[in-house]
């Protein structure tokens, strides 16, 4: 087991832990609980095998659901994002340009934040759509998605800074 896998393994459990015990109980404005565990989908290497990635993400979502007693919404949203990640990467870094090996291996800042925003907003949209699961609650879904997205993105950028190597820009 090399160093990268070890970091991923530790991240998996620590993100899960913080998500369940810290961020799920924040209740900003009474309802906003930022979702931090999606950071795992960002730090996982872009060029690695997707089959394993989908399985791990399913496990991640499933564990989050299991420990926060929330049906299957986290699972479905995370699973879908893991499946769609290559498309998002291609679209945010440019279809023709070179795709980086991992998130921190690249200096193109705008592309980085596009990828992050797309990942988070889609995840949140799917998550809240499944939580409400009602066509008449569209405005509620959008409101929850937007507010949670703001907090999740800010906190995730902070968390992602922890992964940066000292010599990175």
């Amino acid at each position: 087991m090399n160093r990268k896998s070890l970091i991923l393994l530790i991240s998996f459990f620590s993100l899960l832990f913080f998500q369940i015990f810290v961020f799920n109980n924040m209740n900003i404005f009474g309802f906003v609980n930022p979702m931090i565990y999606i950071v795992f989908l960002v730090i996982y290497n872009f060029d690695s095998d997707q089959t394993l990635f989908i399985l791990i993400c399913f496990l991640l979502g499933f564990s989050t659901d299991f420990f926060s007693q929330s049906g299957g919404a986290h699972t479905i949203a995370t699973l879908t994002m893991s499946f769609l990640r290559p498309i998002l990467i291609r679209n945010s870094y440019g279809v023709t340009s070179e795709i980086p090996i991992s998130f921190h291996n690249d200096t193109r800042r705008i592309n980085k934040y596009t990828f992050l925003s797309l990942l988070f907003i889609l995840h949140h949209l799917i998550y809240f759509s499944i939580v409400f699961f009602d066509l008449s609650a569209v405005h509620l879904i959008l409101k929850y998605t937007f507010l949670t997205f703001m907090f999740s993105l800010t906190l995730s950028i902070m968390v992602l800074n922890l992964y940066r190597k000292p010599n990175d820009s």
Partner: peptide
């Protein structure tokens, strides 16, 4: 097509899980 197959299989599992739980 292992990735889409795996995705839809796990999706089915999650939906089953969802309906069982809620």
């Amino acid at each position: 097509y292992r990735n889409p197959i795996l995705y839809f299989f796990l999706m089915g599992c999650s939906i089953l899980f969802l309906t069982k739980k809620s």
